[in-house]
Design a protein around this nucleic acid. Structure first.
Length: 698
DNA sequence: AGCACGCCGACT
DNA sequence: GTCGGCGTGCTC
């Protein structure tokens, strides 16, 4: 049955028919249509790329008040009932045919705010993905019980302390904060320095957030992991922005995926309803619906956790950059190091640099020395030792003053081993993955397929003995325990027995940690020793930058040189990486790397998309993309390929790279999305992954 | 995704 | 002579 709004069927009892005739034809079976904005444009929660557009539905009068923009609805789509979000309510339909009515409003809560909807669309477009893929990252699953919880009374206005004390050492820092308070939208790339309590990175971020809140706007801080969330929340508390709690809705809320569905949804709603003016969270919180957003912050943008591992693989730094443009808010990315993409934001003039001068840098950092084999040559045969004599002496001397941090790039025991006779790397007989040993008396195990290599013999020379190539944190802790009898040794790492330690006490101890798992010492470490520098700064795009980032993160936990703090880099790292650490100059390194990538036409100087999947599928996707330089496809090798063959995937994968000048990045994404849309409509076989600016380019 | 319609092989 | 393969098309 066809119902035309404004026609005789829609006359409500005793009311005259609306005078305006609307062009909405709806198959509502006689039920009246909403008087006001009778059409809902709905994003349908189905994965195929060719369905990534709004579909229009008629809004029955009964849902006129509940089917608001941003609400979750159920609609009939084809022969199935599907979930969706109301993107907007409009007066007239663009669709020519009849409109089906919305089936049901799941919840009238507008969980998809207009700002977040716009951001999600922009993210989908930028990374050649679909809106619903992004919404799955952006909007947590509904939790009905949490939604029904009473909303507490706000505890009065939030008035944080006004201070820029943690910023005075940084050129442009206090001005940035002032600009934020006064409602501006400055953009800064900030290189943080270690410091005394009150002037550390957490304090600086807390003061920037306080400045924003003081100006009457909300703020969003995205950090790599939950430990950092806690650190920022503590600093915020000290800056006069207390922790949000359900019974005192006020302040800063923690938003992380690993808190579980109920806690996460509660935190999400706190931001949505404006009870929490500030959100501090991990990766997915980059989409949090903060009210009157005034400032977005990304801390340590080089940390791999900021790269979303699910399609369309957006990166927090870029999402927040996009968001700051869309919402006209301030943008701050900070780290002890400097990533090449962050440097690119500065180089292009999009953001301003906020850094300390040389004198401030020198006075706040530890003394850094690199011990490479050339320097150690005079030590004789001991130079080749993993812990050369000068490093041993430094540890011994500094232990008297407090804890000493030892950073080991690899976890485990002996993660990589080789033939004891001919030194060929030991590989798995089945998949050719690298063999490692998990404990003092462990059997060699394949790092790719996990098979035990009992009775291993070398492919090359037939020998049956193994030697270590890389030594992990566990074995290092053992060795250090023997080298420093009587000194407590603690191990921190995701795979360590005690897990990741948040902090250690200010007492003499050896603290062995893998990168990113370093505990903080309240008064700073007396020294840090960064082992296996060559392993850290291996080959591959961005390896040097990444190694320097991890070294600086550890070095930033050490006392200043004035307080005796020392950092030793042990091993043969590439000279430019070692020098960037010794001179504490991550910006110089990032700047040179960026120049080089421009010459080599590598990202971020250009935009690259990788297309991975079965050969035919990749070819079909790439075929439909015009005006692009195509590299490959080449067979995919390495752990992923081995894993696939281990689970019995028949078809080997290939990867093609598409390269365009940066200015054509948007066109490339659009063209790829169109190709994927054709692909899904035609149901071309296989699974294809498209990744823009992939991080694992080598 | 899910389900229709629509043209060519082996079976009650 | 039918039952049924999955190749295109559509879903507001």
């Amino acid at each position: 049955m066809e119902v035309t709004d404004g026609g005789e069927q829609l006359v409500l009892d005793g009311l005259p028919a609306p005078r305006v005739r609307r062009r909405v034809r709806a198959a509502t079976g006689g039920q009246p249509l909403a008087e006001h904005l009778p059409v809902a444009r709905v994003a349908i929660d189905l994965p195929p790329a060719h369905l990534d557009r709004p579909f229009e539905y008629a809004v029955p009068a009964s849902m006129a008040q509940s089917a608001v923009a941003g609400s979750r609805v159920k609609v009939r789509f084809g022969r199935q009932d599907v979930d969706g979000y109301v993107l907007e309510r409009v007066e007239t339909a663009e669709h020519d045919g009849e409109l089906l009515p919305l089936r049901r409003v799941v919840s009238a809560l507008p969980v998809l705010t207009p700002a977040v909807a716009r951001l999600a669309r922009a993210v989908a477009d930028r990374w050649a993905g679909t809106l619903v893929d992004v919404l799955r990252l952006a909007v947590p699953p509904r939790h009905a019980r949490v939604e029904g919880e009473p909303v507490g009374e706000a505890a009065g206005p939030l008035v944080p302390h006004a201070s820029a004390s943690a910023w005075t050492a940084f050129r442009g820092g206090p001005a940035f904060l002032q600009h934020v308070t006064s409602g501006g939208a400055p953009r800064a790339v900030w290189t943080a320095l270690p410091g005394a309590p009150g002037e550390r990175w957490t304090d600086a971020i807390a003061q920037a957030v306080a400045a924003c809140v003081l100006g009457g706007r909300g703020a969003l801080v995205v950090v790599p992991d939950a430990r950092d969330v806690e650190r920022v929340l503590d600093a915020l508390d000290a800056a006069g922005v207390p922790r949000w709690a359900a019974d005192r809705p006020h302040g800063a809320v923690r938003l992380t995926a690993d808190d579980g569905p109920a806690v996460r949804y509660r935190a999400f709603l706190a931001a949505l309803r404006g009870g929490a003016q500030v959100v501090v969270g991990t990766r997915a919180s980059a989409f949090a619906p903060v009210r009157d957003l005034g400032l977005v912050v990304c801390w340590d943008d080089g940390d791999g956790l900021h790269a979303e591992p699910r399609a369309p693989y957006p990166h927090v730094r870029e999402v927040l950059a996009l968001r700051s443009e869309l919402e006209g808010c301030a943008f701050l990315v900070g780290a002890h190091g400097r990533t090449v993409p962050a440097q690119s934001l500065v180089a292009s003039g999009w953001a301003r640099e906020v850094v300390a001068d040389r004198a401030a840098t020198r006075s706040r950092t530890a003394r850094v020395l690199a011990l490479n084999s050339t320097e150690l040559a005079r030590e004789g045969p001991a130079a080749a030792a993993r812990l050369p004599t000068p490093a041993w002496r430094t540890i011994r001397d500094r232990l008297a003053a407090g804890p000493v941090l030892v950073q080991v790039p690899r976890a485990g025991y002996l993660p990589v081993v080789a033939c004891g006779r001919c030194r060929a790397s030991a590989r798995c007989a089945t998949c050719h993955g690298p063999l490692g040993i998990a404990s003092a008396d462990g059997t060699p195990t394949c790092g790719w397929c996990g098979r035990l290599a009992t009775g291993w013999r070398c492919d090359e020379c037939g020998a049956g003995t193994l030697r270590s190539v890389q030594v992990g944190s566990q074995r290092t802790a053992e060795e250090l325990g023997r080298a420093f009898p009587g000194v407590p040794v603690r191990v921190s790492g995701a795979r360590a027995a005690g897990g990741v330690l948040a902090s250690v006490r200010d007492v003499p101890a050896l603290v062995v940690a893998t990168p990113g798992a370093e505990p903080v010492a309240p008064s700073g470490y007396a020294a840090a020793v960064l082992l296996d520098a060559a392993t850290s700064a291996g080959q591959g795009l961005g390896a040097a930058e990444d190694a320097v980032r991890r070294w600086l993160a550890a070095a930033a936990l050490v006392r200043s040189s004035a307080d005796g703090g020392q950092v030793l880099l042990v091993g043969d790292a590439p000279e430019r990486a070692a020098q960037a650490l010794v001179r504490w100059d991550p910006v110089g390194l990032a700047s040179r790397e960026l120049d080089e990538r421009a010459e080599l036409r590598l990202p971020p100087a250009v935009r690259v998309a990788s297309v991975t999947g079965p050969r035919d599928a990749v070819a079909a996707v790439v075929e439909r993309v015009d005006d692009v330089e195509v590299l490959g496809p080449v067979p995919v090798t390495g752990a992923r390929a081995a894993e696939r063959s281990a689970v019995g995937a028949l078809e080997p994968e290939v990867r093609a790279l598409l390269r365009v000048p940066r200015a054509q990045g948007q066109a490339l994404a659009r063209s790829l999305a169109a190709s994927l849309s054709v692909r899904s409509a035609r149901r071309e076989g296989g699974t294809v992954r498209v990744q823009l600016d992939p991080t694992d380019l080598s």
